[in-house]
Write a protein that binds this DNA or RNA. Structure first.
Lengths: 172, 172
DNA sequence: GGGCGGCTGGCGGAAATCCGACATCGACCT
DNA sequence: AGGTCGATGTCGGATTTCCGCCAGCCGCCC
């Protein structure tokens, strides 16, 4: 017979300036962070049993981030996807706090200059929002273009990271 | 949404000179007759609830057949299969009691002279044994070649139909 | 008679291929 | 600026193609 995977999965919900955040752990390691109403959010029944124990450190760092006291997460993550998706997500975490990159820029960095749309696709499938900062990717012309959690949240996140001293956010 | 078929299915088991026979009805019409240990016999759980009511006439004719008093069944049948299979099965019921045809002969009658092996395949999938007389098909050389219920049963059926006055059955 | 080899056609599952959907980009137009 | 158009890469599901199986047949050989 085929070997059954037998992964344990737990989840919890925390509050944030961007609404409730659902945290998911697979085998005790953070594997998902989803906003309410987010596109491509997996069905609820895949989140496992409620259990806040695995999420102590993650919640601490998120709260520090929302307070403006943390600019770089340091957490074990479990990112499961196709080789290309994993490449894109690995590139995302290298974008510094407060900065942005364009889809085409990331594609070029991956050695596939024409794959900008594919980067957008993989971006949308990012399972761990905020911590894997897909919100830092915008169009080459500077337009926000899209965000699984909604363009307004993307704009708020960027404005927040740009800092209170930043000029008014570029709206669309 | 897709329309659900919602077919009713019932079954019963009767005894015979060839062992227990499982009769299956779909929407009240005979759709299956399987021997014990027969190849391609569907799994038990598809036979529906036990209920002998739909099978009165079928059982009567079968008993008459086993007693040698009936040579032609007259029953509504529900034969479900591919167009080719239905063609083969339709050809089967036209083989008279006590006679035999070869696989190639049937193939030719269907307008596909080369399809003798395909006829054998369709023959093996015959859902209503005995009544749809797949046992009356033998190799061009006269050999029995195969039977879902076992070659011995095929040989017994042919010997029985040939009649007590017939000469000794050709063994293999 | 029996045993091979090569041809046959249909079937069903597996593999390969196709196609639509996209969080893009650049050139061109008005 | 905004809109349209074509080219681009990946993904997932659907579709198509392929391949092995088989209740055969014929010709050839021993």
């Amino acid at each position: 017979m085929t070997t059954t995977p037998t992964v344990t999965r737990q989840h919890t919900v925390i509050d944030s300036p961007y609404g409730a955040l659902t945290l998911v752990a697979t085998d005790g390691v953070l594997s998902g962070l989803y906003m309410t109403g987010q596109r491509h959010r997996p069905p609820e029944e895949t989140f496992g049993a409620p259990d806040l124990r695995p999420f102590g450190e993650a919640a601490r760092q998120l709260n520090a981030y929302f307070a403006g006291e943390l600019t770089e997460f340091d957490l074990p993550l479990r990112l499961e996807g196709t080789p290309f998706q994993r490449g894109v997500w690995a590139e995302l975490v290298r974008i510094p706090y407060g900065e942005t990159r364009s889809y085409g820029e990331l594609a070029g960095r991956l050695g596939k200059p024409g794959a900008s749309r594919a980067v957008g696709l993989a971006n949308g499938k990012n399972p761990i929002g905020i911590i894997v900062p897909c919100h830092r990717v915008i169009g080459a012309s500077g337009s926000l273009t899209g965000y699984g959690g909604g363009l307004d949240r993307k704009q708020q996140l960027l404005a927040f990271e740009r800092g209170a001293e930043g000029e008014a956010p570029v709206l669309f």
